[in-house]
Amino acid sequence: MKEEFKVISKFIEEKSRVLDVGCGDGILMEFLSKNKVVDIRGLEISKEKVKKCLSKGLSVIEGDAENDLKQFPDLSFDYVILSQTLQAFMNPEKVIENLLRVGKKVIVTIPNFGHWKVRLDLLFKGEMPVTKNLPYQWYDTPNLHMCTILDFYNFCNNRGINIFKTISLNGQSISDIKRSNLKYKNLISELGIFLLEK
């Protein structure tokens, strides 16, 4: 079980309705439905992964968050999860808007482009960084819109999106991100996990 999923699952109250956008193989969905008895749905773009999810009996729809979120009514889920997918969208701003429309609360995880290894790669090697969480070369990356924890923090603030909680993940280590340690955590976190509300 990924550390990230543990954090996400702690955010979620029991017996809530959850939509996992970009649910992949459905590992988080399975974990949540076994441990939190949640009513959970998934949306996934890859046919192969959708088939895997359905094979596990998970209610997953093949679709693309940029086009297919609109079919879900306003506030129809208690939580909507977007795990490490935001950077792959053509229009991340619109996707976030839709997530906040569909979900009462939204959990967004971003791979942090502000991590020190990323900064050093660019500074010393002068090459686009390739790391554990960002394993692609510049020419084959699906990640169109990379951002840092600080970027996303500012993005939410500028739009009046409430940030309830922000968690930093660095290897196994989990810690809170606050306004006071934001710049530091932006340097040492591999992932940032945000709990948002409109």
Binding site: K47, I61, F72, P73
Partner: peptide, 18 residues
Amino acid sequence: IVIALNAIGADVGFVEIK
């Protein structure tokens, strides 16, 4: 059909087989 079901929060999975 999927869209109609999602509009009322019904439990639905969908895949298009290649």
